[in-house]
């Protein structure tokens, strides 16, 4: 088995269909929608098409958990003993089990919400964050950026369950949220330990994380305004070890990502 498996080789059964993040960003409907006032984009039970939006997001969480599982698994394998400490690999193996449970939870939640496996397409940008060849970059991409996004998403969905009175959704999201806080802490701890005497490597890792965080803001998917379906979970991020400055930075990155996406979408729709 080779080291560093590219996203194109992620193994899936026939139910899964892949999409790219660029397909979504370049969709000409984005521009048409941007010109309308559809009210708050927040994912809340009272909003139009809330059930189908929640089902769609839940499927995105499901495929995201599969990719997080695969990313953690690859990190146990891709690095030799002299490249990644034994304890780091143990943490990644533990994360494999956690993500495996999250996939199981997501499948059960999907059944509860009437979503079939593979019902929606799958983008692999989450796994792409797990393809860095420096283990600490990978930890920053996966445990701080990806798992940080998971905190935001799970918190949004937990609130969705609470507001709608859905006991199953709230219960499941709360449990998954607990794991994600642990995973982010894991990433922050390893970042500190592995770069203690190497500030340049730390900066490279943080720069990589910024790039991934921008990607994960998905052109406005995550942020702190009414235009963002997923809200930045400041309190939980702080609990997971993010400083206020770091959270502010993610918020700014999200705004920038939204503006970039608007510009790209407008460019794609403009007559040539």
């Amino acid at each position: 088995m080779k080291k560093n498996l590219p996203p194109s080789e992620l193994a899936r059964d026939s139910r899964f269909v892949r999409s790219t993040i660029m397909d979504a960003i370049m969709d000409p409907r984005n521009q048409a929608l941007a010109e309308r006032d559809l009210g708050s984009a927040k994912l809340q039970p009272g909003r139009p098409a809330a059930a189908d939006r929640a089902r769609n997001l839940m499927h995105g969480i499901f495929t995201g958990e599969i990719q997080a599982l695969e990313g953690a698994g690859r990190t146990t394998f891709d690095f030799d003993d002299d490249e990644a400490p034994f304890a780091l690999k143990l943490d990644m193996a533990r994360q494999c089990w956690d993500e495996s449970r999250h996939v199981e939870i997501s499948v059960k939640l999907g059944e509860w919400m009437g979503t079939e496996i593979g019902e929606y397409n799958e983008a692999t940008f989450l796994y792409e964050a797990a393809c860095a060849t420096d283990p600490i970059l990978r930890l920053c991409g996966v445990n701080r950026a990806l798992e940080g996004l998971a905190i935001d998403v799970f918190n949004t969905m937990r609130e969705f369950g609470d507001i709608s009175g859905d006991p199953v959704l709230e219960f499941c999201e709360d449990w998954m949220l607990a794991d994600e806080v642990t995973h982010v802490k894991m990433g922050s701890d390893w970042l500190r330990r592995l770069t203690e005497n190497d500030p340049e490597r730390r900066e490279r890792a943080l720069e990589f994380q910024r790039g991934v965080d921008k990607l994960f803001s998905l052109g406005g998917f995550r942020g702190e305004t009414d235009e963002n379906p997923i809200q930045l979970a400041r309190k939980l991020r702080a609990m997971a070890g993010f400083s206020t400055d770091e959270i502010d930075e993610i918020s700014e990155i999200s705004v920038q990502a939204q503006e970039d996406a608007r510009a790209m979408s407008a460019g794609a729709s403009a007559p040539s």
Binding site: M1, I66, S100
Partner: peptide, 24 residues
């Protein structure tokens, strides 16, 4: 390490999840 590496290479969802669990 092997089980963790294989997770991404097996298409069978149940096998994928079992490998993730056994890896730990």
């Amino acid at each position: 390490e092997t089980l963790g590496g294989w997770v991404a290479t097996v298409p069978e969802l149940d096998v994928k999840l079992v490998l993730g669990r056994h890896c730990y």
